[in-house]
């Protein structure tokens, strides 16, 4: 595993912490101190993933995110002290794959990085089946199995499951999911989503009251875990 990760952050201590943590597990590191350098380094060195701080000295991180997303299609993870739901949703809408607020646990960050990298691989491979733990989803035949048992899913439940599973490890906002599955006019109708998530959990989770697969991101959306 010799993937290169670019860190765009002006705080020396955070960069040092990330460098130690990430090199310890085998990633190569590029460090950029501001938005301008960040953009140049990303273009020159093609990192497999970018960790971006929103509070940069020269430009707002959200603007840099938009600029990067014009041509950079690998995962971008936001790592910021800003932790309001508005900021997080905006960043996700601007194309960030994930969002972690400082202070963060390095273990959590590593898991998110792994998930994001794996996701970008599977997307490029365009496979028709997804296996997550004991769950097996056949996208072509619209079927899902858990522990080899066929799950009885409605069409909407299956669309929800496949949308989440295709974006495994990535936070999908309520609005995004509602738009993808129910259409534009339903983006405010979160109650539908809540009901379907509860139904789906009963079918796919070992213990629906302690979900391990379909994880809630407070006030933001859902993430499909490992």
């Amino acid at each position: 595993m010799n993937e290169t990760i670019q860190i765009i952050d002006d705080e020396l201590q955070i960069r040092r912490l990330l460098e130690i943590t990430l090199t310890a597990v085998g990633y190569n590191i590029i460090q950029s101190l501001n938005a301008k350098d960040g953009l140049i380094d990303a273009a020159a060195q093609h990192p497999s993933l970018i960790i971006l701080d929103l509070g940069l000295p020269d430009t707002d991180g959200q603007d840099l995110l938009v600029k990067l997303r014009e041509w950079y299609f690998h995962p971008i993870i936001i790592l910021s002290v800003r932790n309001s739901e508005e900021d997080i949703i905006k960043a996700l809408d601007n194309g960030a794959n994930d969002y972690l607020s400082k202070p963060f646990r390095t273990g959590e960050l590593l898991a998110r990085i792994r998930a994001a990298l794996r996701l970008s691989e599977t997307q490029s491979e365009s496979c028709t089946t997804i296996t997550i733990g004991s769950l097996f989803i056949d996208l072509a035949n619209h079927t899902a199995r858990k522990n080899d048992l066929l799950l009885k899913l409605t069409a909407t439940e299956f669309s929800l499951l496949s949308l989440l599973a295709k974006n495994q490890g990535r936070v999908l906002t309520h609005q995004y999911i509602l738009k993808e599955i129910w259409g534009y006019s339903y983006v405010e109708q979160t109650q539908y989503l809540r009901v379907f998530v509860a139904q789906l959990r009963k079918k796919i989770e070992d213990d629906p009251s302690k979900p391990k697969l379909l994880i809630t991101e407070s006030g933001i959306g859902y993430r499909f875990g490992e």
């Binding site: 998530v197 509860a198 407070s218 006030g219």
Partner: peptide
Amino acid sequence: IRLDWCDINDLINKVTE
């Protein structure tokens, strides 16, 4: 305050975790 429909079980899971 941003009111939105919530599954209370979700809330409890999150906090107890």
